[in-house]
């Protein structure tokens, strides 16, 4: 007999993460378990995106995905992948993330209340704005940038931007009204949120100015309730395989977005060495602070970061 598992999804059903990652993955799970496990996606989310770790932990839905940054203060180690210069390919950073998590970060037990099925990142984040070419921190001075919380916010305000902490879904409204001059986004989001005609100047930061950490989690008791055979089958298509699947999709949509921006006639510049140095100077203390946090959890942060960057084939670590 089949076990029916529920999945709560908060992104629109047409979003690449849902259409090309989550849905194909649920099909892989059904195949791997020869139909003994069926995953039912609920018609709409059971709550705000930031509730989705809790939703899986408490079993309101059996499986969820979400972002660590949506619940500040709760997780510490994920920041490793959100620092600048993590890598140019989402596939490489995602796979590296999963491997380093299993080698070291996982020991801290940050996800002990759920069964962790996967970790991944989106593509590298860059700077997009409507006013000018950004090639140094001085160009950011007084620029109103929409940011998420966490590292994005600290970094952008360190570099001199006026930061607006607003949800990414509000960017069209913010930019068309001139409330915001720009935003930090991976390339895909520029076209996904339809701001390519407004954010006409893009500065690409090699390895990314920031990145974003996602998880896929399952209720612990529901996972334990599966037979050993089915648990193994589920994990065989999750973990590294899921990281690779998700990373590839992000890479694909980023590449398509870059083409679209070029076709649109947007100005695309690569961050000069000077800007990269300024970012590096601003981020070094943040990395140090993070290493101290990691040490409190019994994790060697410096070693983990180095392993991550070696694996994700990023430019040499600062």
């Amino acid at each position: 007999d089949t076990t029916k598992l529920t999945l709560s999804s908060w992104l629109p059903s047409g979003h690449p993460l849902v259409k090309d990652v989550i849905v194909p993955w649920t099909e892989q799970v059904e195949q791997a378990t020869e139909g003994r496990v069926e995953i039912v996606m609920l018609p709409s989310a059971l709550g705000h995106p930031k509730m989705h770790y809790d939703i899986a932990r408490d079993g309101q839905a059996d499986i969820t995905y979400g972002a660590h940054g949506y619940t500040p203060g709760r997780f510490k180690l994920y920041k490793m992948v959100e620092f600048p210069f993590g890598g140019d390919s989402a596939e490489a950073t995602s796979v590296a993330y999963w491997k380093v998590y299993n080698q070291s970060l996982g020991k801290a037990g940050e996800h002990r209340d759920v069964q962790l099925l996967g970790l991944f990142t989106h593509g590298p984040g860059h700077i997009h704005n409507s006013r000018k070419t950004v090639s140094a921190a001085a160009d950011l001075k007084g620029l109103k940038l929409r940011v998420g919380g966490g590292i994005m916010n600290d970094l952008a305000s360190d570099l001199g931007a006026v930061t607006l902490q607003k949800p990414s879904s509000s960017i069209y409204e913010l930019m068309s009204s001139g409330v915001a001059d720009g935003t930090l986004f991976p390339l895909e989001s520029v076209t996904a949120f339809n701001i390519q005609d407004k954010a006409t100047h893009t500065t690409l930061v090699p390895g990314g100015l920031y990145n974003f950490s996602f998880f896929v989690a399952m209720n612990r008791d529901r996972f334990a309730g599966l037979s050993q055979q089915d648990q193994d089958a589920v994990m065989s298509v999750s973990g590294e395989a899921l990281a690779r699947l998700a990373g590839r999709v992000w890479d694909r949509v980023d590449a398509a977005a870059l083409e679209a921006l070029k076709t649109n006639g947007n100005e695309i510049t690569e961050a000069p060495e000077a800007l990269i140095d300024e970012v590096r100077a601003s981020v070094d203390p943040m990395v140090e602070a993070w290493q101290a946090e990691a040490a409190e959890l019994g994790i060697d942060g410096a070693a983990a970061l180095q392993a991550f960057r070696a694996e994700s084939d990023a430019p040499a670590a600062p």
């Binding site: 809790d54 940054g69 619940t71 500040p72 203060g73 919380g149 966490g150 916010n153 902490q165």
Partner: peptide, 16 residues
């Protein structure tokens, strides 16, 4: 009590 244990805070001002 769960939120206290997790140490959840706001994003910018880090209010618990």
């Amino acid at each position: 009590f769960k939120v206290l244990r997790y140490g959840d805070t706001t994003a910018v001002l880090q209010i618990p």
